[in-house]
């Protein structure tokens, strides 16, 4: 399976689309940093965990769109034509599907590495801020639920109909840029930029990074539902191999 993983990575990442998408992600992240985050969210420092969380939350829609876009590779008509060959091999469809998801997750991690790298460069070069630890918790709260939910919902949508993936992309755009706000904001942008306003200021003037139970539950729900959808998608992979 290592070989399959290697080839899947190569197919996904070593092409002009991914490089273009990487560029788009990077450019957008830089706009967000220099356009929004530089002011700091909810009157906190631009390098507060709140601002950093908002940065990740604002860039996630584009990153999730990229992941969904990569998923279309696996559900495109062209891919279906190759499936008549791969479907006749003895490979375990569940493991095969997992390996492919692993390749997409790797693509996500590369994108995230770019986003993190850009933000650290931004903080260091413009604001002379060199710490990393305050960013770990917001990153953990934003990134895994986004990835798992995108993979889960994307796989399921793709298996039902590739057109649904585009509908999902549209939904991501609407939710990501229209915003739901509150604790249940899927990307957390509305939460990070509003919740700290209700908190008392700490010693340095910024409210401490304490999160509400609602938000933590919401993150867990997204992670859980995403995981569930992912398992359903994998289950559908097994079924597909034996029906018309």
């Amino acid at each position: 399976m290592n070989k399959i993983f290697k080839y899947e990575l190569r197919r996904l990442l070593w092409n002009k689309f991914f490089i273009g998408l990487l560029l788009i992600n990077g450019l957008y992240a830089w706009f967000v940093l220099t356009g929004d985050i530089i002011a700091g969210v909810a009157y906190t420092a631009p390098f507060s965990p709140w601002s950093f969380g908002a940065y990740l939350a604002k860039t996630m829609p584009i990153t999730v769109l990229t992941v969904l876009f990569l998923l279309t590779f696996y559900y495109a008509k062209k891919e279906k034509r190759v499936e008549v060959l791969t479907g006749a091999t003895p490979v375990n469809p569940v493991r095969y599907s997992l390996v492919r998801s692993g390749a997409i997750a790797t693509a996500f991690l590369i994108l995230v590495a770019l986003l993190l790298g850009l933000s650290l460069y931004f903080y260091a070069s413009i604001l002379d801020y060199w710490h990393v630890t305050p960013f770990i918790l917001p990153a953990l709260l934003v990134l895994p639920p986004c990835l798992i939910f995108a993979l889960g919902a994307g796989h399921l949508a793709g298996r039902l109909h590739v057109g649904l993936l585009y509908v999902l992309m549209l939904a991501v755009l609407l939710v990501g840029f229209g915003g739901i706000g509150g604790a249940f904001d899927p990307f957390g942008g509305g939460y990070f930029s509003v919740y700290p306003l209700s908190l008392p200021a700490g010693a340095d003037g910024d409210p401490a990074f304490t999160l509400s139970a609602g938000f933590l539950i919401a993150r867990a729900v997204y992670l859980g539902v995403g995981g569930g959808l992912f398992l359903m998608g994998i289950g559908a992979a097994r079924k597909k191999a034996t029906t018309a």
């Binding site: 399976m1 070989k3 399959i4 080839y7 190569r10 092409n15 034509r81 190759v82 008549v84 490979v91």
Partner: peptide, 20 residues
Amino acid sequence: FGLYDELSVWQFLDYMAALK
């Protein structure tokens, strides 16, 4: 049937061999 256009002939057969 379709093939992965982005791979070379050898790479594609290597891929299929791995699946088999």
